[in-house]
């Protein structure tokens, strides 16, 4: 079974706040699922090297989509409308209000 510390570390990496009860149940669930999916380890090393998935890159021309362009999804206003916390900007429109993360040097 994976340890409580491992679960807490994963939760930190995934930015998830979990209750103590959930940490405990996840220890069990994740261990059970890992036991099952561990079957994939049966795939031989040489297979792994031979069988890189076939992928291709799909690029578009590196041109910005202008406002009102048929290539633009959603208006600026509609996207701003979805902001959880906004403040009126002095020049019109809105600011997205986010937590201050840069502290002044003491």
């Amino acid at each position: 079974m994976i340890s409580k510390e491992e679960v807490l570390n994963l939760a930190e990496l995934a930015r998830l706040k979990l209750s103590d009860a959930e940490v405990e149940s996840l220890q069990k669930d994740i261990s059970n699922i890992l036991d099952y999916v561990g079957q994939v380890s049966a795939v031989g090393v040489s297979d792994v090297e031979q069988l890189k998935p076939i992928l291709r890159n799909v690029m578009r021309e590196d041109k910005p989509y202008g406002a009102g362009s048929v290539m633009m999804l959603g208006s600026r206003e509609a996207l701003l409308e979805a902001l959880p916390k906004k403040e009126k900007a002095p020049m019109g429109g809105f600011f997205n209000v986010v937590r201050k993360i840069i502290q002044k040097d003491e």
Binding site: I2, V7, L13, L26, V40
Partner: peptide
């Protein structure tokens, strides 16, 4: 939450090759 945790686990360094790498080859 469970699947995010599981996904974070199989992608974390040290486990990536054992799970994700192998799964991709099997796929």
């Amino acid at each position: 939450r469970r699947r995010i945790m599981l996904g974070t686990y199989v992608l974390s360094s040290g486990y990536y090759d054992a799970y994700y790498g192998k799964a991709t080859a099997a796929r």
